[in-house]
């Protein structure tokens, strides 16, 4: 389940730092909304497709990026067609699709680990090193917790199925939550016990 959407590569697009790509994406989308012009939109589409080509990514990935949103796009087109005209509908839909495709390019060409490091660096600059340390801890803990919660959930589901409650959301969620909250408290105490004196903010209240 935890397979990142990153596609490895060594192109210019891959090597551009993730922070730059995020900034470029932000500028790109803002400008797309500010300038409403067919020529401009055509240029933007060409630019994004050229970037996929430059990143040596097959154009099927463009289709894969758009596909989950496909019938939203169709719906938007129909509403626009009904309210305005088909040209404006097509314009809105293409602009929407190209933003999704551009944003997906960022995900396809940036390593998850590098993006997490980038977030930690930005947090460190904005709020200081000890906040960044907490953010880093939160990221690594959550990645470790996903399989733990899933395992607990599967055990609970087996047990509830035997009671005929296998499809009851309440009966599935409550025990999963209480059991994982209990483990979370044990883990918090274990971390505090091992990092006594480490600069990780205030310590949890002692239970002695």
């Amino acid at each position: 389940m935890l397979i990142s959407l990153y596609k490895p590569g060594n192109s210019l697009v891959h090597r551009t730092p993730a922070g730059w790509k995020i900034a470029l994406l932000f500028v790109f989308c803002t400008v797309l909304f500010l300038i409403q012009n067919w020529w401009f939109l055509g240029g933007a589409i060409a630019l994004v497709l050229a970037s996929y080509w430059l990143a040596k990514l097959p154009l099927t990935l463009v289709w894969q990026a758009v596909r989950p949103a496909l019938w939203v796009l169709v719906l938007i087109f129909l509403v626009q067609f009904w309210l305005n005209d088909w040209q404006f509908g097509l314009y809105v839909v293409l602009r929407f699709a190209i933003m999704i495709v551009a944003a997906t390019l960022l995900t396809l060409t940036s390593k998850t680990s590098e993006m997490i490091e980038g977030i930690e660096r930005s947090v460190s600059k904005l709020f200081g090193a000890d906040v960044a340390e907490k953010v880093g801890l939160a990221f690594s803990l959550s990645l470790r917790f996903i399989p733990m919660v899933r395992e607990t959930y599967q055990e609970v589901r087996e047990a509830q199925k035997a009671r005929g409650l296998g499809r009851n959301w309440r009966a599935l969620i409550t025990p999963t939550m209480i059991r994982t909250l209990k483990s979370a408290d044990d883990i918090a105490q274990a971390i505090d016990a091992r990092s006594a004196g480490a600069p990780l903010g205030e310590k949890a209240p002692r239970h002695d």
């Binding site: 907490k134 801890l137 939160a138 990221f139 959550s142 917790f145 979370a184 918090a188 505090d192 310590k203």
Partner: peptide, 12 residues
């Protein structure tokens, strides 16, 4: 923010 807070945030 205590270690426990961080652990709970990550858990959720």
């Amino acid at each position: 923010m205590t270690t426990r807070d961080i652990v709970l945030i990550a858990l959720f």
